[in-house]
Design a protein around this nucleic acid. Sequence first.
DNA 1: CTTCATTACGACAAGCGTAAGTATG
DNA 2: CATACTTACGCTTGTCGTAATGAAG
Lengths: 295, 295
Amino acid sequence: MRLKALQYLTAVVDAGSFAKAAVMLEVNASTLTRCIDALEDELGLTLLERSHSGVRLTSGGTAVMVAVRRMLADLDAVAETARYKSAGNEGELKLGVRMPPIGDPLETLLAEWRGHHPKVSLTLYEMPDHDLYTAVENRRLDAALVAGYGAWPNVATEPLFCELLFAALPNGHPLCARESVDWNCLRRETILVQDWDGSHATREFYASLLGIGMPFQSHSASEQSVLALVGAGFGVTLVTHGRALADFPGVTFKPIREPNAQMRIELAWALESKDAVVGRFVSFMRDNTRLKRIP
Amino acid sequence: MRLKALQYLTAVVDAGSFAKAAVMLEVNASTLTRCIDALEDELGLTLLERSHSGVRLTSGGTAVMVAVRRMLADLDAVAETARYKSAGNEGELKLGVRMPPIGDPLETLLAEWRGHHPKVSLTLYEMPDHDLYTAVENRRLDAALVAGYGAWPNVATEPLFCELLFAALPNGHPLCARESVDWNCLRRETILVQDWDGSHATREFYASLLGIGMPFQSHSASEQSVLALVGAGFGVTLVTHGRALADFPGVTFKPIREPNAQMRIELAWALESKDAVVGRFVSFMRDNTRLKRIP
DNA sequence: CTTCATTACGACAAGCGTAAGTATG
DNA sequence: CATACTTACGCTTGTCGTAATGAAG
């Protein structure tokens, strides 16, 4: 069965004659005759009664037209769905974020994304960097914000911004007198680590910066609680720039004078992804972080 | 948009790869590639992610497939509707019957028709013969049972059966002594006529048999009432053979020995009607009255 | 090296428009 | 005779299969 035949049929029925429909459709009347003849032949049912003053539906044709109109409406729905989806207006996006929580730029970015694409359901998944990569590669995630460690197969990456790290010290701590700190002086301190789920991901990240064999203390608690512990003098911890901008009682934030005291946050997504929503997200992130990037 | 492309798409999605779908559909894989490429191009949306281990739907493709499957289901509904209708299983049939009521053969026939085609809604319209013809010609009726008077334009007719007419006489009437009556002896009687709506159709029919200028008495009452009047001695009337077979208190039925003491009942329908239901009805009536016909 | 998807190319068929035909009012 | 549907014919277009290409496990 040809789609065009069904469209021609409805036009002829609506116009009431082959000739009028031919004008509307800008085709020759003979085309309509042939198409509808073929359709009737295929269906084994006479749909139209031809006369010299137009056409009329048979009772069978009336019944068929009900189904045909519904079918054509669904056809429009197909095109409409495609148009809507191709604009990336709707869909779902599973976004992974690295465990050591990323701060301000991300929140702002996601808020703006949501403003532009309110119909896209965005789900966040927190996991260690390595898991993020494999999840993106396996397509359990559509995209992820990772620390840029290098190239992975089948995963495309794009640098977005850098998060500077700050040291969180108890007020009155000797280091508070200094303008900035470095890894060397922090190595003498007890480092408090937030570790919600025992994954040790944050701990390992800190170890990659400070070196192994440090006196880490993992706490299955919120960042707030960890900072409270810092304020109480239990040790020191590391926070992102965004977090350091806000005051916290009993805690002093100091910049770290080290080249690697930062997280290069990259966007990662599956190379083979042809999803319109993912494409939109990637280009959105690219465009909206251009100004915020720290070289 | 091509219907075949949508069918190919669902096959590929269901099979999970172009190659498997190609085997199922018994087409070449290149055909599928081309069709789906064209479809994606037309929709402006990538539906499938190709890999070397098959294909997967994009999120847009998933959404489109919902609409596509519904569309194809409706397409099946079109074909199914046509198949059902072409068998004449369903529909409506407006059947006109002549005013001087036709008796037994019709009732039996319609009962049988209903038994074979219970889904066809049959509506009866009683009107004078002339109106029946014009109604059929104008397509206000699909078919009609008429007295065969001759050919009408655009109306096909087919003789079905003959209804013999009987005279209904009061018990004890002199004519009751005879085996049969004829027009001549009836012309001396008052002829009671049932005339529901003042159309005088029955009256004119009787006049065509008995001749004009007869003492007719129209009664806007049921056949039962008219026969009661006959039993009370108000006059005589004519009934069909079927009616004469049943007793009526105070009334005697006598055959009429006249060649035209009958109604040749014909089936009439619009020549241009291409309706499957009408066609079924015509051939049904033709087939089921062959044995009952009186030559 | 096999499997799967894509691209190129040629044969074939299908669809369309022009124009002539038929029937009706 | 003007209108409206149908049929016949030739051309264009599109569609399909074969075969070659590319890419990945």
